[in-house]
Amino acid sequence: MKKFVNFYIVLLVLFIVLGLFGISITNDKETEDVIEKNVLENTPGYETMLAISEMTKEQQLQDAVLDIQVTPEKNNEIVLVKMQSSEFMTADILLKDSYNMLVKIANSPQIAEFTFVWYQVINSENTEVLTMTFDRAALDQLQAVSYKDLATIATVFEQHSELK
């Protein structure tokens, strides 16, 4: 009977050792990274989010992006970008920066609606100072207008009274 118990103990230890060895082999960091990359690439709106992030980084010297939200619809995407401006930026500068980014963004045909929300510190509070929303028709018109005319083609254009 004692040999029988010892045999099962040795067999149990062998299974535990093989199990731990198997877990250590399959717990590969590269496998996790590949799975995570595949999941992100197949996430709706992820490609648009990366493209917009790159476009905004090219335009801004500092890391001004607060948030990028992409809402997928049937065949289109609705994009919201929240940006932080410095307290020295004027409405004219914000419009120029927005226009330069919008021209690049307009080349993405899957974007049905695009909204810029600019924030600026006013009286020690981060305040929404400029909001602009453009539908697909307005994005298609960008090449025909200047940055000064963004308010005329935007479906929503709100400017804070403190913005110079």
Rank of each mutant, 00 (worst) to 15 (best):
L61R: 04
D63R: 05
E73Y: 07
T48Y: 11
T152H: 04
V34S: 03
D135R: 03
T115S: 11
V17W: 06
F157C: 02
L142N: 03
S86Q: 11
E47I: 14
F134V: 09
K104S: 06
K82N: 12
V39T: 10
I16L: 09
K2T: 14
D92A: 13
I111R: 00
L20E: 06
A138Y: 06
I16Q: 05
K148R: 07
T152A: 12
V10I: 15
E113F: 10
F114L: 09
I68M: 08
V129I: 14
H160Y: 07
V39P: 00
T71S: 14
E47A: 15
D28I: 13
Q141T: 13
L40C: 04
E73H: 06
N75S: 15
D97C: 04
L95W: 01
N100D: 11
E77L: 13
Q141K: 14
M55F: 13
S86M: 08
L150E: 03
S85K: 05
K82A: 10
L95F: 02
S85W: 10
Q120K: 07
K3P: 02
E54W: 05
I122L: 05
P109D: 03
V34Q: 04
D149M: 08
L130Q: 01
V39S: 01
T155D: 01
K57M: 05
S98P: 00
S24R: 11
A112Y: 09
V121R: 02
L139M: 14
F21A: 15
A91V: 07
I93G: 00
V39I: 13
I52F: 04
M1A: 12
D28V: 13
I23R: 09
F157L: 04
I9N: 01
V79N: 01
I153H: 02
L95A: 03
G19V: 11
E30G: 01
A51W: 08
H160K: 06
L142I: 12
A151L: 12
L20P: 00
G19C: 08
E36H: 04
L94K: 01
S124R: 08
F116G: 00
N75L: 15
V17A: 15
Q84G: 01
A112R: 07
G19F: 11
L94E: 01
T71K: 12
S98L: 06
I153A: 02
D140T: 14
E158V: 09
D135C: 04
